[in-house]
Nucleic acid binder design. Structure first.
Lengths: 250, 250
DNA sequence: CAGTGGTCTAGACCACAAC
DNA sequence: TTGTGGTCTAGACCACTGA
């Protein structure tokens, strides 16, 4: 077994055994180098592994902290859409979240993985609406949500404005724009965090994020049959999970 | 921007642009070292990143191959359980899979993340049933499934035998053992692959796997109220996703 | 402002599997 | 057999940020 595997395993066991409780720091790289009698490169390889597993988070000058690793919190599966006077809701709120910074609206090229969903060509422009959500108490960022809307449909409409008004974009689509009723479906997937995501969610590079992608399709009006929005929501995969009931159909 | 970021970005663009099509190899590390005029360590850091993203797979002596990266394949959400004369089915088969090796049955300590689900104490023994599933044509392994059953309930019963007979363990539980009808629920999550998972699924270390965990609860008999099985199914997160419909409840 | 992790170099040897 | 990626060393400098 490679030396860095041994070091990683030793550290992993020390963390789970409580030698280094959550919130505390593991020894510095120089100290570990001495403790395990190997080069710093080997130590770094081991710590990189624990980082990828979401167990620790290194911060420059601040040392490497053991992350809280509670039970994963539920991230309700939104198989049903509800509506009240305020707008549409895709999940009963499991955890209260609030915007950490004002939502941003911009225009840019369509990311490769969204191109196919929107039925566009590579390089076509889309309206991009970004929301960064965090815990109300701590302000800690836990969720990133980005909406992509085809520019040929949304540019120049209220959908491209910062404030979309009461009820949000879905009310605008089904109301003024006459695209409704909308059809939705969802996809759950996971991938390594991008550099931006890692920074905002305070994750190490390459740590998995859980993604829920919701697609909205117009069934009427000028956009009939078109995918009018793709919403990608991302969370730290080590802290969240999607739960669902299984019904007996016999 | 760090040099290895630049190298990674250049390689990433070369791959997505088709300079290195799926199935072909990127240049060797020595060649990249020359091409980018930096040390091999820097090259390796960049390639490690692409590996974590699931874009390439390095094989010793075989070079580093660009992975096929088709659209993610659906991995149907099993919100309903069906039953026929052969047994219970949790998902309409999206893709035909067959066992790559005979299922194994053993007894061992309960993994930490399963302890809580089974309602056991740390260190208690469980029956472990392992299945490795692959594509019928190529034999390529795409799914790992492991069942954990409390030893105090399952040891000595047919549940601990290699062949559980027609209909599988759920029929035994609901039939001879009188634990039924069973209740199930599921959880979707993601995490970095373990070393074993990475080897079997042919992934790089730390690459995300998508997990679907199904829990079975007895509603009758000697096991009433107990969790009698936890099944953890894992797939390469870069190749599979869970799709689900969204219903309008208003 | 100084100690931490982040990056990078140049070089060596090894283990494995494709050739 | 041998070329490939895998591991490891010893050392250097840098950049950021928390003490």
């Amino acid at each position: 077994m490679a030396r860095w595997h041994e070091v990683a395993q030793a550290l992993r066991e020390a963390v789970t055994a409580g030698t280094y409780p959550p919130g505390t720091k593991i020894p510095t790289e120089d100290q570990l180098e001495e403790q395990f009698a190997c080069s710093r490169t080997t130590i770094r390889r081991a710590v990189a592994q624990l980082t990828a597993e979401g167990l620790v988070l290194p911060v420059r000058r601040g040392g490497t902290t053991v992350r809280e690793h509670p039970e994963r919190q539920p991230f309700a599966l939104d198989t049903h859409v509800y509506r009240d006077e305020l707008g549409y809701y895709f999940s009963r709120t499991v955890q209260d979240l609030r915007p950490v910074q004002p939502p941003t609206v911009g225009q840019g090229p369509c990311p490769p993985d969204v191109v196919a969903l929107l039925g566009l060509q590579t390089g076509e422009l889309v309206i991009i609406r970004d929301r960064v959500m965090g815990e109300p108490e701590t302000g800690r960022v836990v969720q990133l949500a980005t909406s992509y809307l085809p520019a040929d449909l949304a540019a120049g409409t209220v959908l491209a404005e910062a404030d979309t008004g009461s009820g949000g974009i879905y009310d605008r689509m089904e109301g003024e724009l006459g695209w409704g009723p909308l059809d939705w479906h969802g996809v759950i997937a996971a991938r390594a965090a991008s550099a931006d995501e890692a920074r905002l969610l305070r994750l190490g590079p390459g740590v998995p994020v859980l993604t829920v992608t919701r697609t909205a399709i117009a069934t009427a009006g000028s956009a009939e049959g078109r995918v009018v929005e793709v919403n990608v929501t991302r969370r730290d995969a080590s802290r969240f999970e999607v739960r669902y009931p299984i019904r007996r159909d016999v």
